[in-house]
């Protein structure tokens, strides 16, 4: 009774959530039955009902596949490196941009940093291959700076691939990653800095004591998403940069599944891997969410 009353009282609020809930039911929850393909043998000529059930067969195949585990290792390595660099650097960069006093310089730096985000990997990958070749842009720059005597082709060296994948992705996305932080900083009350300056706080103290704590919710949000996305990887990037020599370090889960799907015409396999990744991701999500709650007065960022 009491609940109903309360519900009626907040009917406007409930009416506001309703469209979102209806949307999710239609566009996210109705198609979710596609997950059952993970337990079927679903090929191109099948429909959901006609494909035969195979139980956990697909999962068994995956776990027994040594190439799959290699791709898991590469995915984790690349993602962890991306997590350490790609998570922290945009925060520093955003703070640095925020601290710029000259408006024009600020705008220019911001705009420049976003541009690479708009380049598709299909084309950028082609450029990167030539930049990283023996006489490419990269080696010529290093040689001009006296950091290197003789160039070699970096993409043929499997031991360099992880760095290439991480750094090129960072180059492309670092500026884009600052947007949310800059939006977050724009609501920090400038009088806080004023007061701190009066108290003689250095710039660094201002940043560590004011800027970063007030950014905590957004930082936590990004951390949560980054950690739960550890098993995800950039398919487009992998497909253009991978060659037969660096494959042992370049093959990631997504590209492996993509190739299996392509050559075997087996949709179930991809769904099964996807389902596995989703489950692990949610577990990681819950763990990081628990940890970051401490940063945000005990409440969760994500739910």
């Amino acid at each position: 009774m009491n609940t109903l009353k309360r519900l009626y009282k907040q009917r406007q609020l409930q009416l506001m959530v309703l469209p979102g809930i209806i949307f999710m039911i239609i566009f996210n929850y109705i198609p979710i039955y596609g997950i059952i393909t993970a337990f079927k043998r679903y090929t191109i000529v099948d429909s959901m009902s006609s494909a035969p059930w195979v139980g956990l067969e697909n999962f068994k195949l995956i776990v027994q596949d040594s190439f799959f585990w290699e791709s898991v290792r590469n995915t984790l390595a690349i993602s962890l490196m991306k997590l350490f660099l790609g998570f922290a650097i945009p925060i520093f960069l955003a703070i640095m941009i925020f601290e710029v006093k000259n408006m024009r310089f600020k705008k220019i730096v911001q705009t420049i940093s976003y541009i690479p985000h708009f380049f598709s990997w299909i084309v950028l990958g082609g450029m990167l291959i030539s930049w990283l070749s023996t006489d490419g842009f990269f080696n010529q720059t290093l040689m001009a700076l006296g950091l290197m005597h003789k160039g070699n082709n970096h993409l043929l060296d499997p031991s360099q691939y992880w760095w290439i994948a991480v750094l090129s992705d960072l180059w492309k996305e670092v500026g884009w990653g600052t947007i949310l932080y800059l939006a977050g900083m724009s609501r920090i009350d400038p009088t806080l800095y004023e007061a701190a300056r009066m108290d003689g706080a250095t710039k660094m103290t201002q940043i560590t004591r004011i800027t970063i704590p007030l950014l905590a919710p957004i930082i936590s949000l990004n951390l949560i998403l980054n950690v739960s996305g550890l098993l995800g990887s950039n398919l487009d990037q992998t497909l253009v940069l991978m060659n037969s020599q660096n494959q042992s370090h370049a093959e990631v889960i997504n590209s492996f599944v993509y190739r299996m799907g392509l050559t075997q015409g087996d949709f179930s396999y991809a769904t099964a891997v996807g389902l596995g990744i989703s489950i692990v991701s949610v577990i990681l999500l819950v763990i990081t969410d628990r940890i970051t709650r401490k940063l945000n007065d005990g409440h969760s960022i994500i739910v």
Binding site: S133, T134, N153, L156, Q245
Partner: peptide, 12 residues
């Protein structure tokens, strides 16, 4: 034989 020949894409 040079290494770049192994990485060049179609356009190059």
């Amino acid at each position: 034989i040079v290494d770049d020949s192994f990485t060049d894409d179609g356009a190059t």
